[in-house]
Design a protein around this nucleic acid. Structure first.
Lengths: 292, 292
DNA sequence: GATTGAATGAAATATTTCTTGCAATTTGGT
DNA sequence: ACCAAATTGCAAGAAATATTTCATTCAATC
């Protein structure tokens, strides 16, 4: 029994119990972070009790989680844990056949920084409070950003009521907007900007509905048609603009609203999860087995 | 005072007291082993009392040795070839009133690095080629990741034919899968995993369809049910897991497929943009004014 | 050489991390 | 559907790791 940790983990992945698999899988996926973890931190992350983590390590043949870690030190001594080493590695491996990936990563990292800068602005706080308190929220996205809009809307729906993702198929969204006084609109859009986006923003503003626009840095009509404009970086050395960071921004926004709403959101979350569990089921739910 | 650990150590090496120098010197030389050490193990090795190690960490600006280690884990900031000024500025400005935002940013940046590491793996290349060449692509996403799936599918549709975003309302996706031989499936999912996700993956595999799963590091059923599993980091110090980086991964994937397909994609892109322009219109298009 | 202030280690205390025993739950086989 | 075996979480206890206090040492200044 002098296998490497990885071997043992894979073995556990096949033969282990349910919790064992969870732990093994997590460890396998997070080998780099393992040295920084403790038995209890792992336990929390995979939602298992500390005791189980300890026992798991023992079934693997180590004396404890600590013992496992110290073997890790020797076992895979060439695995870089330190972020700086990992970066260096990326850099090196990219040195020859560079596909521009490394440069893209630098840009995307810079983009993340920008997004977090946005999240510190006064405008941001204003939007967060509005999303927490206003009666009704509409969300819209165009072209490829439809997905981002849906992502945002779905998450917001988890933590509050009356969130509607506008269907833009026809342009039939206008009546939805005039129907209600106390509402706001969040839009996701990047070039080439859909004509609908501008129309929608203008109609909304005309109806007295505050408009928040998440877009790229090239959008020139946004400032006129929206109350707040959050411009996220989109050029990461890829063949076309990437609006991926809008998702990061969305999450930050959701997080802000969550904190604004306070603890009672938890109840709602739990309720929704339970409902989903009833209707569709989660992996591992014993109660929702479907008849064969 | 937002220098990197290495900088701080060097500083201590010059200005520190006798013990400080001993400790600093040791740490500098054993950076890679540091994650495995504890305050007392260091104390023993350097022949200093534990207390001194603790104090040393505090003079360096960390709360404890443990805190120092956790900074080591994703210390992006001290990589000069990455960001620098703005990042540092942001960290400084956040020094006091922190809401955990800065910590979250560090984690998310580290996450971006992980995603780019994934994009260099052999599995990745395999998926890219498959997506470029296979006859038919199905995309699926569950719960909040539906949006990401849509985002991915939309973009893929821009550069190739026969991409279908599966509608999961009923579970009626199964016939879609058996209908065709030469197809593959890309799934986005994070915990709590929808039961549908697992079922779909298994059905697909049973039908001989390669399955690629983009998920978080906690997914334990993925390895059994999917051909490739890309585990993206999701914990950024927010109240719940953020799957935002899946969007970044999506874009990288699209970019890869694009390059694989070669230049003739441009034609397709142009055609689609023109079509969209006709039907809905882009901002600034003079031809698509609607009659008032 | 005396005085002061910083630095240090030892011991006591606090905190974190791990293990163990036990009850409850789940699993797998009949 | 039932039962036995395995698995798991909880809670209490044990061990480890870290912090604080305090008396001592050391070094610099006068």
């Amino acid at each position: 029994m002098t296998d490497s940790l990885e071997k043992r983990l894979e073995n556990a992945l096949l033969n282990g119990s349910k919790s064992d698999k969870k732990i093994a899988n997590f460890m396998k996926g997070a080998l780099n972070d393992l040295p920084f973890e403790t038995a209890s931190s792992v336990a929390t992350k995979v939602k298992v009790s500390e005791a189980t983590v300890g026992r798991f390590c023992r079934t693997l043949g180590y004396a404890s989680f600590k013992d496992l870690k110290s073997h890790l030190q020797n076992d895979i001594a060439h695995n870089p844990w330190l972020m700086s080493d990992r970066l260096r590695e990326l850099q090196d491996s990219a040195a020859g056949d560079d596909t521009g990936l490394t440069r893209g990563m630098e840009l995307e990292i810079a983009g993340v920084v920008s997004v977090y800068e946005i999240a510190r602005s006064a405008e941001w706080q204003q939007v967060v409070e509005r999303l927490a308190n206003i009666h009704r929220v509409f969300v819209a996205g165009f072209q490829t950003e439809r997905g981002i809009a849906q992502y945002f809307a779905n998450q917001l729906q988890y933590i509050r009521d009356r969130v509607t993702l506008l269907d833009l198929s026809g342009g039939n969204f206008v009546e939805a907007l005039v129907s209600d006084g106390d509402a706001c609109l969040v839009m996701f859009e990047a070039r080439r900007y859909s004509r609908l986006a501008k129309v929608l923003a203008q109609e909304a503003q005309a109806a007295g509905i505050p408009v928040t626009l998440v877009t790229d840095v090239y959008c020139d009509w946004g400032f006129a048609a929206a109350d707040e404009v959050f411009a996220v970086p989109t050029q990461f050395n890829q063949f076309w603009d990437s609006t991926a960071l809008m998702a990061s921004l969305s999450n930050l926004m959701i997080n802000g609203v969550f904190k604004e709403l306070g603890p009672e959101v938890d109840l709602r979350l739990e309720k929704i999860a339970r409902l989903y569990g009833r209707v569709t089921g989660h992996v591992g739910d014993p109660l929702t087995q479907v008849a064969k």
